[in-house]
């Protein structure tokens, strides 16, 4: 006990800071599309790539991306993982989670999503159904908030 008393002490504190992120015209329009169950990308007039979410400008060519393209709601799994621990922001009842990146048909990028629609508590079943190169489609929530979570999950196409 004496040793514990001699140990230099710490002071505990908590800090919070709210913020309000401006979406700008491009992402405002993108999320309006999401509310209507539409996924929009934009095409670069120089390199021709279609990127999702829609972008105001091409990160490589640095040209404005002004051509709007409604892209497919089906795509191919580029990679996936299985989260079975509670990280900050994930409560016990929110795990496991199966995150994935999905290359939507007709696009030149992959986008983050969550795979679901079956018993994902069973890892062996997940490993059997979820494959790199496997196909998935978007499943929408009934109530839309105009955010990426409006896509409830990506359903594996058998």
């Amino acid at each position: 006990m004496a040793e514990e008393k001699e140990r230099p002490r710490t002071i505990e504190a908590v800090g919070t800071a709210p913020f309000e992120m401006a979406l700008g015209p491009t992402w405002t329009r993108f999320f309006e599309g999401i509310k209507e169950e539409k996924i929009f990308g934009t095409r670069c007039k120089k390199c021709g790539r279609v990127l999702v979410p829609a972008r105001p400008f091409c990160p490589r060519c640095f040209e404005p991306m002004e051509e709007w393209v409604e892209v497919a709601q089906e795509g191919t799994i580029v990679t996936w993982s299985y989260i079975d621990y509670t990280y900050f922001g994930l409560e016990d009842d929110m795990i496991p989670v199966v995150p994935a990146t999905i290359k939507l048909d007709g696009t030149d990028t992959s986008w983050w999503g969550v795979i679901g629609g079956f018993d994902i508590k069973d890892f062996d079943l997940v490993a059997k159904k979820v494959k790199v190169g496997g196909r998935v489609k978007a499943v929408w929530r009934k109530e839309k908030r105009g955010c990426v979570q409006d896509i409830e999950y990506w359903k594996v196409i058998e």
């Binding site: 979406l23 990679t79 989260i83 922001g89 995150p99 990146t101 969550v114 990426v148």
Partner: peptide, 30 residues
């Protein structure tokens, strides 16, 4: 770590371990 990216355009649940595990799985698949 969860404040490093904006949280609205790319889902990033699970932080660094997830991002880098997914990278590893991408490499294995590729």
């Amino acid at each position: 770590m969860m404040t490093i990216l904006e949280p609205f355009l790319q889902l990033s649940a699970g932080g660094a371990p997830v991002a880098f595990s997914m990278q590893s799985r991408e490499w294995m698949g590729y």
